[in-house]
Write a protein that binds this DNA or RNA. Structure first.
Lengths: 124, 124
DNA sequence: ATTTACATACGAAATATATCGTATTATGAC
DNA sequence: GTCATAATACGATATATTTCGTATGTAAAT
């Protein structure tokens, strides 16, 4: 498969990326054990997914040793924006403000977080 | 199929729901014509999707006449929250504030919208 | 050297989703 | 009534994604 960037990761791929973003790098077993905390699945399932992600260019890996070591090859920020923009367009009529207010309104947000946002707003 | 609420709509289903939310109610042809502005696809594709959505309970329909009239059966707000929460959890470590700031930072947001958000923040 | 423990590779099945062709039916025009 | 038009129903195929079994390789322990 050709290395195509800006490809939207699937659900399963996102779960794996989460782990890689947290740890910087990890083996298939590392990732798999982390995923087991969330859901049941076989080891080879995780392996296969990570192999596919490698082919897609979503991750890199060091295969000098028997046990490969994987790293994310797309940034968390870029990926967040990819999904945010998609969502803003398909569910919020293209208005980020609408999304923001909806997000603030329905998820309990702490005073500290709200202050943080105010500061951020003023800095723009 | 059993009517299961709180089911996460698929991509295609979201596109259709968008149209229904805008218009309150619409025929398959109405929806299809709207979708054609976005992408190519056959009429029966749209039809089939809407039939499936009906079975899932995502939409209702009035079938007294030959041409059925469809209505959304899930609210836009509920659906927005479904996706927002999912996204906050899987991509923003559970922090809505993080999502909000990321959304404000990368999508161009107008002065007016920013003011609107400030007002909203103060009203909490 | 053989066994054991893990690792990768890879094909195939299972599942979810999207797409479309065709048969059938209803409606209105003639 | 017949024909043309347009709608639904439904099965089949296509595509994407996930899951797993099995073969195989490698390294360490015995």
């Amino acid at each position: 498969m050709t290395l195509i960037k800006n490809t939207k990761p699937t659900e399963g791929e996102l779960e794996i990326l989460q782990v890689l973003w947290d740890r910087q790098s990890a083996t298939v077993r590392d990732v798999h054990e982390e995923l087991l905390k969330l859901k049941d699945s076989g080891y080879t399932t995780t392996l296969k997914l990570m192999q596919i992600m490698f082919e897609k260019g979503l991750v890199t890996r060091d295969s000098t040793n028997k046990t490969h070591i994987y790293q994310p090859n797309v940034s968390k920020e870029k990926t967040q924006n990819l999904f945010l923009n998609k969502m803003i367009n398909t569910l919020f009529s293209g208005s980020s403000a609408q999304l923001v207010m909806q997000a603030l309104g329905n998820h309990k947000t702490s005073k500290e977080e709200l202050d943080e946002i105010r500061n951020y707003l003023n800095s723009i």
